Amino acid sequence: MLNRNAAAWHEEHGMADDAVRHAAARDAAWAARVIEQNADALHLRSESATLQRWLAAMPADSAGSSSRLSLVQARLALLSGRVRPVEGLLDAAESVEGRSGRSR
């Protein structure tokens, strides 16, 4: 309960870093949503290390449950010169989209 309250307070006050840290401890879906909402802004500010830290704090299976998080991971891999994992991450994103029934 304490982590959830702390995450909510930090998110409400625009402190995404602290919100993700608290949410990842108890509510991976909430943390994923905060990461998704902030990923583009962090990329524009060249804060890939922050995104990598946030993703590392998430449970291992949670990143694969969101197509957006898979795309964020793929973009980070490309930016850091790691090409090998990109295809798998793009496949994971496509798979999640297919399971959710969304079309582009």
Rank of each mutant, 00 (worst) to 15 (best):
H22K: 06
R104M: 08
R75D: 09
S65A: 15
M1K: 14
E11R: 10
S70N: 15
T50W: 03
E97Q: 13
L55W: 00
S80Q: 14
D61L: 11
R82C: 03
A29P: 08
Q73L: 15
A49G: 12
R33G: 06
D27S: 10
S70M: 09
A39F: 11
V86Q: 09
A77I: 07
D40P: 00
R53T: 12
S70C: 15
M58H: 04
G14M: 01
Q73M: 13
W30S: 15
E87G: 05
R4D: 05
V20A: 04
A74D: 03
A6V: 15
Q52I: 05
D18H: 02
A49D: 15
G81T: 07
S70E: 13
L69H: 12
E11G: 05
R33L: 07
L44R: 13
R26T: 15
D27P: 06
A93C: 00
G98W: 09
R45K: 10
W54D: 00
W54V: 08
P85A: 04
R75W: 00
S103M: 09
L90I: 12
E94T: 12
L90R: 06
L42A: 10
S62N: 00
S66G: 11
A49P: 07
A77Y: 08
D61F: 10
A74Y: 02
V20G: 12
L2Q: 07
